[in-house]
């Protein structure tokens, strides 16, 4: 079974986010790291692959400037190889254009299973994985809180508004996993060393046969008009608990006539 995991390399979430003043796109000029949300997909892929003999895990990512630091982290966890789509013309791509580029790269890998996070930490539009599934002609099961497979059929516990559904579908298929679905392993020293020599195939739009004018800023069919400060809530009263915290809350609730 060949498992492909989508890995997004994002600006370090510990650093406050910023938008480019002119284009209003997210500033990605700093160092990029693997999106924490994707560590669950990588772990899930490694576990599923471990259960089906002859399986392998390939990472797929799209990032500017040939960025691979986030991919090395996932390779250190145990993935065998990575494909990186990197091309200056992709800058400013919307989710659908990104899905097209990733789909072209993933098709080459001929996966049985594609795993992605439900949404990224930086953009959180949450639409890309299903767009990807449609472009690949695959069934998709989103918001998985549990996944198992025998290499032929996929069994998923899918989160719903009221609880969860047991969902099944034949492979090849795409699944999106929620954070916490598995406990991501820490890369071992051996894993980190091995990751340095694992192959990363870097592909340009020309390699993928994609017209640069269909993607990136030029291909985007939506624009940010402006960004404004949200209406701030009137400043609240913040107090240190001196043993009277509960009493203060009771008084507040009384004032609102909730109790």
């Amino acid at each position: 079974m060949h498992v492909v995991v989508c890995v997004k390399q994002i600006p370090d979430p510990a650093v406050p986010g910023a938008l480019d003043q002119v284009t209003h796109t997210l500033d990605r000029s700093g160092k990029l790291v693997m999106d924490d949300s994707d560590s669950y997909g990588v772990e899930m892929a490694l576990q599923l692959a471990g259960n089906v003999e002859g399986s392998e895990v390939t990472l797929v990512s799209m990032a500017p400037g040939g960025e691979t630091s986030g991919l090395r982290t996932a390779l250190a966890m145990g993935a065998a190889r990575a494909i990186l789509v990197s091309d200056d013309a992709l800058s400013g791509s919307d989710a659908l254009s990104t899905a097209k580029a990733l789909a072209a790269a993933i098709r080459r890998a001929e996966p049985d299973l594609v795993i992605a996070a439900t949404e990224s930490t930086d953009g959180y539009t949450g639409t890309l994985p299903v767009q990807l599934a449609e472009l690949l002609g695959m069934p998709s099961v989103t918001f998985a809180k549990g996944v198992s497979t025998d290499g032929t059929t996929l069994e998923v516990e899918r989160q719903t508004e009221a609880g969860y559904d047991e969902v099944t579908c034949p492979l090849p298929a795409l699944v999106t996993v929620t954070a916490g679905v598995v406990e991501p392993r820490y890369p071992s020293f051996k894993g980190i060393m091995a990751a340095k020599s694992k192959p990363i195939d870097v592909l340009s739009l020309a390699d993928l046969g994609i017209d640069p004018s269909d993607v990136g800023v030029r291909g985007a069919r939506e624009e940010v008009v402006d960004v404004a400060d949200a209406e701030a809530r009137a400043g609240g009263e913040i107090v240190m608990d001196e043993g009277d915290g509960a009493a203060r809350i009771v008084a507040f609730l009384e004032q609102l006539k909730v109790i």
């Binding site: 659908l96 449609e134 989103t142 918001f143």
Partner: peptide, 23 residues
Amino acid sequence: ASYDGRDVAGRLSAMLDRPVLTN
């Protein structure tokens, strides 16, 4: 913006080749 709604939106976007505005 529900679990099923997001799925329909993503599929429809790729089928029609139209982008989506979410959230």
